[in-house]
Design a protein around this nucleic acid. Structure first.
Lengths: 206, 206
DNA sequence: GCCATTACGCTACGGGTCGTAGCGGAAAGC
DNA sequence: GCTTTCCGCTACGACCCGTAGCGTAATGGC
């Protein structure tokens, strides 16, 4: 969050309700207007606060939308379906459903685009969204290692981290590219084909 | 292109030099200013044309940047290095180098973001960039099938198209996610790890 | 209960971009 | 030379940005 009010500070504390109202209003505005037509004045009006209040808490549109979108990703869960393939299928379908929501579609790619010229913003995205969701990969790999479906984690911690990063980039990248660039649905059929490639490789028989 | 002047039309034809100058100026402006601070007035000044000329040819910033970026992707080539893995490595490294150029980084994701609320724009991206570059996957698969590295193309044309789409989404998605979201370089080490997963699957021994 | 301190709503403002309209002149084909 | 289209230029209203200033509201400390 942007406005963790330190405990022992004098004066009137910031309204936590305002925070929630602003982030919800941001998501609603993303749905109705999309990124480019979203204005902070509009968000403030929807949330029932003054525009200046918004500027006191967030530096601008970018930071606001990152926080508004990041909350959505915490809904993701890794189901335990008994096999690695089934677990991945479960979480990937959830991810695809998330990317189907308009507040996510239009917000996520826009802030990523902005982050290419704004290092603090990129860091905010990394810590608020990307790193947080690597928990899914970590848990999935741990379960699969227990079941013997994947080799155990490497001794070398750096090596293990690289593997997790690679897995995350491949899975998230493929789903994002499928839904947002190719513009086709990541439905069950597609997810099954993808998981076959992911687990067995391109050369595997279909 | 946006301004194919029909041959037998009377009157003064549109200046092809202006087209080239505008697209080059757009890329230069993307390098120096990035997407969000890029204005059509600025591009027009750089290109030495009037702002109104720009609006006569492109509907807006989105369409202009798509055309400016699309030209970059036509530079990609599939080298023949003797094996599927080596071929992929060659083209992926070129792709990574492309995504390292600031005019590409800031422009590409921004128009993808806009396209989530603008179907004609999405179609323009698909035809001008995505579909054009599937030639690389097609050629790579054909070579690999000749060499016996991959099973031959399925009889069913739809099935074959799905496989090509999947391969494209996985490869392009992973590289884009690695460079633009995770913000780490897609260098030789990473590309080799990626290709191992792509060809052999996650369960393959490292 | 009073006071210092901070948050909040409101208004107003300069600065910038957008996208369009209208004009006179330039460059092509016939 | 005529028509047709393109081009450069200027000007314009509309909108959004981000900030400043003010009076008021809500806390915690004493």
């Amino acid at each position: 969050m942007q406005s963790r009010t330190p405990a022992g500070r004098p004066g009137r504390p910031r309204s936590a309700a305002a925070d929630a109202a602003i982030l919800a209003a941001t998501r609603q505005a993303l749905v109705e207007l999309g990124w480019s037509k979203l204005t902070l004045q509009d968000v403030a009006t929807r949330a029932g606060v003054a525009k200046t209040t918004l500027y006191r808490r967030w530096a601008g549109k970018n930071e606001l939308v990152v926080d508004a979108v990041a909350e959505l990703f915490d809904e993701l869960r890794l189901p335990d379906r008994g096999s690695l393939a089934a677990d991945i299928e479960g979480v990937v379908l959830q991810f695809a459903a998330l990317l189907d929501r308009p507040e996510c579609r239009s917000g996520l790619m826009a802030v990523v685009a902005e982050s290419t010229r704004d290092d603090p913003l990129r860091e905010r995205i990394r810590t608020s969204i990307v790193e947080r969701q690597k928990r899914l990969v970590l848990e999935g790999r741990a379960r699969a290692a227990e079941r013997g479906e994947l080799p155990p984690e490497p001794e070398d911690a750096e090596e293990a981290a690289r593997t997790v990063d690679l897995t995350f980039d491949v899975v998230a990248g493929a789903v994002v590219h499928r839904t947002l660039v190719s513009g086709k649905p990541a439905d069950e059929d597609w997810v099954r084909s993808f998981i076959r490639v992911l687990l067995l490789g391109l050369a595997a028989p279909s």
